[in-house]
Nucleic acid binder design. Structure first.
Length: 271
DNA sequence: AAGAGATCCAACCGCTTCCAC
DNA sequence: GGTGGAAGCGGTTGGATCTCT
């Protein structure tokens, strides 16, 4: 015997674009009765759509508070950052972008931002994005540098540098991923403590080691050398991710020279 | 002006997860 | 624990629109 639900599935549901009349029916029903079982909504609202289609239409188009129109630069920055951290987790991203749906973010990424990012990578013009020419090196930063502080680059006061006590306070961890590609390529990868960001992220041992302030990885630690190709692929996103995770500005993460790094390695990790 | 190709975006599809029974 | 239905999610599609030649 065929179940009722399978019989329902047999019913011809309308597909394709929604008409204004259908929109009105769905909107009116939900505003009057609230959200419930979507298959019931489609029936009770007098729509020949399946519940799934109704849900999608409501979430992506009819729901109050949706923001339509072009994405702002700020929104794109957030998407870049979140994509670096989360990957293609569109629904999670949408939680950080009020008024934007996961579908909208996904579409925008695929139709616009993905290409933009790829072009930047291909033309090796990420310096444009990082805008290194205009931003003073953090190594030269001193408190009260209004050009940096007012620009928001040091927002969150987690800047790794302070000369308030007369000595530089350097970051405990300097991820190799922060290096510009050219810097990375020239960097001496023979350092034993060169590990990838993901390795750090998922290695509790390594994290403990850092927290304990031991300063160097144990001799013979094998946390995995950074893969050049990985870094090449992920650099852009990782920098964005770090901006959010560490409250670091692009300037903070992009201006370490090889010489700087060489001098830092005695006291700090290069991860 | 018209046709071809590119782009955009709403909607669909299939899979996974959650939850009630 | 197994099952089935609903919801959620991400990938993909297809048609409308735009741009280029």
């Amino acid at each position: 015997m065929r179940s009722k639900s399978s019989e329902n599935a047999k019913l011809k549901h309308k597909k394709g674009l929604w008409s204004p009349d259908e929109d009105q029916k769905l909107r009116d029903y939900i505003l009057n009765h609230g959200l419930g079982c979507w298959s019931a909504v489609s029936t009770h609202a007098g729509l020949q759509r399946n519940g799934k289609s109704c849900r999608l239409r409501w979430i992506n188009y009819l729901r109050p508070g949706l923001k339509r129109g072009i994405f702002t630069r700020h929104e794109e920055e957030i998407i870049l950052t979140l994509h670096g951290m989360l990957g293609n987790k569109w629904s999670q991203m949408s939680q950080h972008l009020p008024g934007r749906t996961d579908n909208e973010i996904k579409n925008h990424w695929h139709s616009y931002m993905k290409k933009k990012v790829e072009n930047l990578e291909n033309t090796k013009s990420r310096a444009v994005f990082l805008d290194t020419q205009k931003i003073p090196s953090p190594l030269n930063y001193t408190r009260g540098d209004s050009s940096l502080e007012s620009s928001g680059h040091l927002e969150g006061s987690s800047t790794p540098y302070s000369e308030a006590d007369g000595s530089r306070k350097l970051p405990k961890i300097i991820f190799a991923d922060w290096l510009a590609l050219d810097q990375f390529r020239n960097f001496d990868t023979s350092y034993r403590s060169l590990v990838s960001r993901n390795t750090y992220r998922y290695s509790s041992d390594l994290q403990k080691s850092v927290m304990n302030g031991s300063g160097q990885l144990n001799e013979g630690s094998s946390y995995g050398l950074v893969d050049h190709q990985d870094v090449e692929n992920d650099l852009y996103d990782l920098i964005c991710a770090d901006k959010m995770c560490q409250n670091l500005s692009y300037s903070d993460v992009s201006l370490y020279s090889c010489d700087d790094l060489a001098s830092l390695t005695q006291d700090f990790f290069i991860c």
